[in-house]
Structure formats: structure tokens, C-alpha cells
Simulated scan of single mutants.
Amino acid sequence: MASYRKLKSGWKVTISQRDENGKLRQTSKQGFATKLEARRYAATIEQDIDGVKKAKQDTLFLDYYDQWVDTYKRPKVQASTMIKYRAVHNLIKDNFAGVKIQDITRTDYQRFLNRIGQHYAKDSIRIFTSPIKECVRSAIADDVIVKDFTQQTEMIYGYQRRDVEYLTIAEIKKLAQTIEQSLKPTRPIPYVIYTAIYTGMRLGEIAALEWSDIDFDKRTISITKTWSSVTHEAKSPKTESSNRVIVVNKHLLDVLLQLKDNGHDMIFKTLHGMPASRSVNVSLRSFLKKAGINKSGYHFHSLRHSHVAYLLSKGVDLYAISKRLGHKDMTITAKTYAYLIDEYKEKQDQQIVKAIDEI
């Protein structure tokens, strides 16, 4: 509502309205020659305020999310990260098409979590819901909605991701021997797989390696970048902890030197460019079959798990493994490889009991 007051300089009008949170907001202007002019101004302001409020209330959830991503995320995140935001866009489109954001209730959002939880594992659910929660908080800050409908809801993840398959020590040796017998410098991809066996490095980290990253005297590899399959260029790792120097054995370095004559600064560059994930996995499955190893769910990243399993079996300290993998702290390593750690803990417990029995 508006109130009017006659001043020496003319009429003054004050428009008072409460926002969605009940907070009183006022707009004032003075200097009108007549009270009628002040009334006309007040009517215009009240109409504009109501119009903006109604426009906000008519905002579709999907439209607001896209606007939020374009404004706050796209300018600063890497192209590969945008894949995650596009995936969330598709989820919102599939589950909230045509739904206004202020019409969504906590119950609606919980039902959404119940649905997607049937098809995704816990980690995937977190990846999807994190941007949604951040977007909803932004909508509250923009006065588009009043309450956070994601609060006091529970993630559902009836779909449980299987533990990643890993190779036994004998299988690791068999795979390495099979690859060694097939190595040809004109085909760098087998060398990529061979490097993963000995280092536990991620595919992007291996693909980005240059000869300058290897210290043949100290027998170390410096990992300072990762190859993006989206932008087709080397970029800095997402976290500072991913920048690291790892020790390797002379045998691996001797094998990699076979690629030196290819004449590229990038160690694993092929005739068709950088090794693609699909081509690497096809090659890996071929080597597994040739080695007589039947692991239907085994893929390139499983080599990282196998590397950890091997180091654990040899009694390597978890802290050293964590640093080698480029994890921020041991908690991440312990969580990611909990199933392996539990397995080796059980074996250690058996050794402890045996040792106690001998007292």
C-alpha cells in the first residue's frame, strides 16, 4: 500500500509491501506537484512490483536451472565438468518438465530421489543432487522461492554399484607378459595399458605425459596435467594433490623408451591423435582374452584398483599408496578401496591369530 505526505518541496509517496519472507520493503519518492501525480507514480510502482513477483512465480524449474548454470557455472568450469551439468539438465527435464519451481514440494523432490535411486549408485546420486541443491539455494537468494524443498530429504540408492573387479598377482603378471609379447612402437595404446599396470595412473594422466615428465636418472614420473577427451588438450588436474611425482622401476622406463623413435613430445600420441578411452578398453579386453583372464566387468580404470590391490598385498603403507594415487588424504583412499582394505585386514587378522596361538 502507499502513503502520502505533503512537504514544502511537494508531495511524497511511500510504497510499502511485504516480500515472500514477510519482510517489509519500502520505496519512496518526493517532489510531486500534486497528490494525483504521486498516486499515479505509486500505481506504476505497485504494478511493476506485482509484475516482477508474478514473473518469478511463473519460472519453470528447468528454465531457472539453465539460467543458473549459464550465469554461475559455465563461465568458470571446465568443458568436461559441463557434462555433469548437462546430465542434471536431462534429469530435471525428464522428471520436472513444465513444473514451476515454486510448485515443487519436499514430497515431490523425495519422490524424484526415490525414482532415480533405483537406477544409480550412491556416488552418482550425489553427483546429480549437489548441483540441484546449490541451484535451489540460489533461487531462494533471488526471491524466486521461499523454502528449500531439498531439505530433510534422503538419498535413495537401492542400486548398488558392484565392487570393481581386480586382478590377482598371478593375473597381473600374466597380463603384463601378454602385452610385452605384443609391443610395437607403432601402436602406443598397449604401452598405455602397460604403464597403468605399473603406476596406477589414470588414463588422462598417462595420455598427457611428455618425455620431459620422465626423469630417467631418478626413475620418476612427474604428473602435472591430464588429457581432456572433450577439449582435446592437456589441462591442469582438478585438485592440487593430483600433481605428484611417483617412482617407477627401470623395466617400465626401458619399455617406454621404445616409443622414443616416434618423434612426438607426447609419449603416447598415435597416428590418429591421442589414445581414446574406447580404443584403450577394446585393446585391454583383447589382451585379457589372449591371456585367458575372464573378467567381464573389467575396464581400464580397474587397472588402478588392481595396482592398489597388488601394493596392499605387498604390505605397502596406505599413506604411501594414497600419495601415489594423487588423493587429497588417506580418507579418500580408504573409502574408495574399502573393500580391498577389508579383505587384506581379514588376512592380517588371521595372521595375528596364528601368531598369538604360537605364544
Rank of each mutant, 00 (worst) to 15 (best):
R5K: 06
K6Y: 08
K12R: 11
N21P: 04
G22A: 00
K29M: 09
L36Q: 14
T44D: 15
E46D: 14
Q47C: 01
D48W: 04
I49F: 04
V52Q: 15
L60H: 02
D63L: 00
T71L: 03
K76L: 04
I92E: 15
R106T: 11
N114K: 07
N114Y: 05
H119T: 15
A121E: 11
K122L: 14
I125H: 09
T129Y: 05
I132Q: 09
R137P: 03
V144M: 05
D148H: 08
Q151M: 09
Q151W: 03
D163Y: 06
V164F: 06
E165V: 03
E165Y: 12
E165S: 07
Q181T: 05
R187V: 06
R202G: 04
L203D: 13
E205S: 07
W211S: 06
D213H: 13
D213P: 01
D213T: 10
I214K: 01
F216M: 11
F216G: 07
T220K: 13
I221E: 10
S222R: 12
I223D: 12
V230M: 09
T231G: 15
S241E: 12
S242V: 01
S242Y: 00
N243G: 02
V245L: 06
I246A: 04
K250P: 00
H251N: 05
L259I: 01
M266H: 11
M266L: 12
L271N: 14
P275R: 14
S277L: 05
R278E: 15
S279Y: 04
H299A: 10
R304S: 11
V308R: 14
Y310V: 02
S313H: 12
L325D: 15
T333L: 10
Y337H: 12
V353R: 08
I356C: 05
E358G: 11
